[in-house]
Design a protein around this nucleic acid. Structure first.
Lengths: 141, 141
DNA sequence: CGGAATCCCTTGGGATACTG
DNA sequence: CAGTATCCCAAGGGATTCCG
C-alpha cells in the first residue's frame, strides 16, 4: 500500500521551536509540551479520538456507535461522549420518545479533529509495518 | 494569540471514509479505527509524543531530556525511551566513558512524528480557549 | 433504548533507594 | 550520569446489574 508523503515536517521540524519562541516570556506561559499534554489529556485517552473518527460527519445513535466501535463498553462510550459534549466537540440530542432515541453528531469544532485523526491514521498506515519489523529485530536481541 | 487555520480537513472530513473504502474486503483487514488505536496505543501514552517533540532534531542526553520535560520521572523517561527505541523511533548511543554519557536522537521515522506533534500542538493552541469556555458553560448547569 | 451505579481487577506511573 | 529495582497508590476501564 502506498501513501502520500507524511503530512509535513519530516525534514523541517522547526515548527515547535517556532512556537516555543512565540511563547517565551509569557508568565507561566505554556510551552509546546504543555499544549501537547493538554490535547493528549483530552483526546489522547483510549476512546475519544476513535469516537470522533467514527462519528465523522454522520449523525449516529448511541447503539450505532456501540456497534461501530469494536471493543468499547457501554460505560466507556457514555463517559467518552459526555466528556466530548462537555468540551464542545459533540452535540447530544435526546428525543422525548419511547423507546428513547439519542443522536450524536460532531460540532464544527469536533469536526476539526477529524483532520488529526486522519493524519494519525495515515501515519499508522505508512509506518506500522516498519515499526513491527523494528520491534522484531529489537526483541531478537 | 492568532494562529493559522487548523492544518486541514475542517470542512472535508472525507479522508477516513476514503481510507475505509480502500480497506474493505481485506481479510480481517484493519479499519481506520484499528489504525488509530494502534498508533494511539504506541505514542498516545503520557510521555512518548512529548519526548519525541522535545527531542526534535537535536541530540540530547538523558539528563537533558529529564530537565526539558517537566514532570517526567526518571523511571518513565527510561521506559518511554526504551519503547521508542524498540519501535525504531529513537536511536540510543552510549559512550563507554566514565561518567557514562548516553545520547538520544530521533530516527528518520521518529522525525515524521514531529509533524503529528506539531499538528496536535497547533490544534490545541487554536482551540483550547474555546474548549475551556465550553467546559465552563457545561459545568454551570 | 440509553443510560446510571456498583464492583473489582489491571495498569500506569510516582517516590524512593540502590548500582555500575 | 544513567540507569535498575521495589513499593505502592490511584486512575482506567471491563463486566454486570438496575432503572426510567
Amino acid at each position: 500500500m502506498t501513501v502520500a508523503a507524511p503530512p509535513a515536517a519530516a525534514t523541517s521540524p522547526a515548527g515547535l521551536a517556532e512556537y516555543e519562541r512565540s511563547c517565551e516570556g509569557h508568565p507561566g506561559g505554556p510551552e509546546a509540551g504543555r499544549m501537547i499534554r493538554e490535547v493528549l489529556d483530552r483526546v489522547g485517552d483510549k476512546w475519544s479520538l476513535l469516537v470522533v473518527a467514527t462519528l465523522g460527519d454522520d449523525v449516529m445513535r448511541f447503539s450505532d456507535l456501540l456497534r461501530h466501535i469494536p471493543g468499547i463498553s457501554q460505560r466507556m462510550l457514555t463517559l467518552t461522549l459526555r466528556q466530548l459534549e462537555r468540551d464542545g466537540l459533540v452535540i447530544r440530542t435526546a428525543y422525548a420518545e419511547v423507546p428513547p432515541r439519542v443522536e450524536y453528531r460532531l460540532t464544527a469544532l469536533g469536526a476539526t479533529l477529524i483532520g488529526i485523526a486522519h493524519t494519525i491514521a495515515q501515519w499508522a498506515i505508512a509506518n506500522h509495518s516498519t515499526i513491527e519489523q523494528s520491534r522484531a529485530e529489537y526483541d531478537a536481541r
